[in-house]
Amino acid sequence: MTEPQDKSRRKFVAGAAVAGAGLGVAALAPGLHLIEVAGAAPQAPRAAGEPAPSTVRWGMLIDTTKCATGCDKCVTACHTENGINETVQDVRQGSQWIRKIDLKDPKNGRTHSLPMMCQHCEKPPCVDVCPTGASMKRADGIVLVDRHICIGCRYCMMACPYKARSFVHQPLTAQNPEVPRGLGCVESCTFCVHRVDKGLQPACVEACPERAMLFGDLNDPTSEIAKRLAQEPATQVRADLKLNVGVRYKGI
């Protein structure tokens, strides 16, 4: 995002040991996760000046048989990555980009645990209802809020069947420079769009100790996620609404 164009400037920024923006992450991330996580980086970083391609549809497969009850490492990783660090008196007024839900089937007592976040619908109700067009879907299927034109009406929150959107109830000061967020606007999971554009995985996927989350291009038949979806049964939450969500769950 902030990658400088000319060399002199690049040298200056690096020299000043600036940790923010692309440079810092590039320096921190090497190897560690990219080797371990199946499928490694979903793709090469997009070249500067290239728009998000409409040939790609980002999606996620969550294996609830692996997701551990009581584990919330994905939630913590999300909060760290996206600078969700404000303290709130009332948890219901705090931002919930991703939350853990525990399910119990009353018929047979089977339990599941799973992370719930923006499902990045192909036909997102939040985008339909937004009066200004702030709620939007990028060409590669990532659903975002354009905070520059969000007026904070919360109609998208009324419309989201997954309760995936949060309204920022208080002034913020400690944002991650790459993840702007602030008072009076609605926000939700971005699939860590700033990381995806650099060829990295979303923070939650990287953080999952059980490797229960898989991120990739649903449109690419050679991708790990597409292959697994072709072989294993996976469900869409609230499939009755026919929103064709980008996040699929296995085992519920």
């Binding site: 200004t132 067009g133 969000c150 904070g152 109609y155 309204f167 009076g184």
Partner: peptide, 18 residues
């Protein structure tokens, strides 16, 4: 509104499906 100061945005940006 969360951003009542953006009344102008509400008037100038229009989403026909909303």
């Amino acid at each position: 509104l969360g951003r009542a100061d953006r009344l102008v945005v509400a008037m100038t940006h229009f989403n026909p499906t909303s």
